[in-house]
């Protein structure tokens, strides 16, 4: 359950590798007919959290994902994958859209966290995330979330309240960045590697805690073998999606109720406590 010393920090570096494939790469390789759908219908369009409609495995799906850039210029345009309230409101809008038409939702998580900023606070960053959580918790269609790089805190979870939670082997998922954790609890951001270790943020550890359904191996790190990683991820997603669709056939209201109840139980049972 515990990786070798410093393994966690090595994973952090891999998860953040600039050449690691991003959500648009997954969409390009795994789907057909993709049409990107923009905007929150209220204020703007967030290029750090993208969404759209596509064919995956012969079926129409709604795709969501944090999009980082591969170079500085794109990273600035994508705000380093840190979504603003508009991103979460767009995601929430597209989830309701998916429910309306009975389309499953596939979400690809890859963000350092939601943007901390003056404008984001003014426009309700916390509320936007909370409302996305609420909608996703009660969504009447199957949902699958795959962490492809960094799963950073509430900004990641906002599109992660899913029926299946999958992680790539070299991705991480954490309550806070190791740097932030180190700055707060060690008073020293340079202790990030230690923090990463004790926080249990690697895919294998999180699977051992029962928080992740399946870890997709990376025989070579995703940035060295992008096509192979994406293909393997696509096969795992397809298997889970077929399984969910078989258990909860679209268009059957009773199945939708069972799906929501099962998602509730999943999250309801998360936690470590004792009753004395």
């Amino acid at each position: 359950m515990t990786d070798a010393p410093l393994a966690a920090w090595d994973r952090v570096k891999l998860a953040r590798h600039p050449d690691r494939p991003h959500v648009l790469d997954y969409i390009r390789d795994l789907t057909r007919d993709f049409v990107e759908l923009h905007g929150d219908r209220t204020f703007g369009d967030d290029r750090a959290l993208i969404g759209g409609i596509a064919t995956f495995n012969g079926r129409t799906v709604i795709v969501l994902g944090h999009q980082k850039g591969s170079d500085t210029k794109e990273n600035i345009a994508r705000n380093f994958g840190m979504a603003r309230p508009e991103g979460y409101r767009k995601a929430e809008r597209l989830m309701r859209h998916a429910e309306k038409f009975g389309f499953p939702v596939l979400s690809f998580i890859d963000t350092p966290g939601a943007e901390p900023g003056i404008g984001s606070e003014e426009r309700g960053q916390a509320t936007a995330i909370a409302e996305s959580l609420l909608t996703m918790a009660g969504l009447a269609v199957p949902t699958i979330a795959l962490v492809i790089g960094e799963g950073g805190s509430g900004g990641a979870l906002a599109i992660g309240v899913a029926d299946r939670i999958l992680m790539l082997e070299n991705s991480i998922y954490a309550v806070a960045s190791p740097e932030a954790c180190a700055a707060i609890l060690w008073k020293d951001a340079s202790k990030a590697a230690e923090a990463a270790q004790t926080m249990r943020i690697t895919a294998n550890e999180l699977q051992a805690f029962g928080l992740v359904d399946e870890v997709i191996p990376e025989p070579a790190p995703a940035h060295e073998s992008p096509r192979g990683t994406i293909k393997a991820a696509g096969e795992v997603i397809a298997r889970h999606l077929n399984d969910l669709l078989a258990q909860y056939p679209p268009g059957d209201p009773a199945a939708a109720d069972r799906l929501i109840a099962s998602r509730y139980e999943r999250f309801r049972n998360i936690g470590a406590w004792t009753a004395v």
Partner: peptide, 21 residues
């Protein structure tokens, strides 16, 4: 969220919101 309980803490956000749903 409480960092000392890692991702278990983060998931309490989803858990509490789901109950409110």
């Amino acid at each position: 969220a409480r960092m000392h309980e890692g991702l278990l803490s983060l998931m309490q956000m989803a858990k509490t919101v789901a109950a409110l749903n």
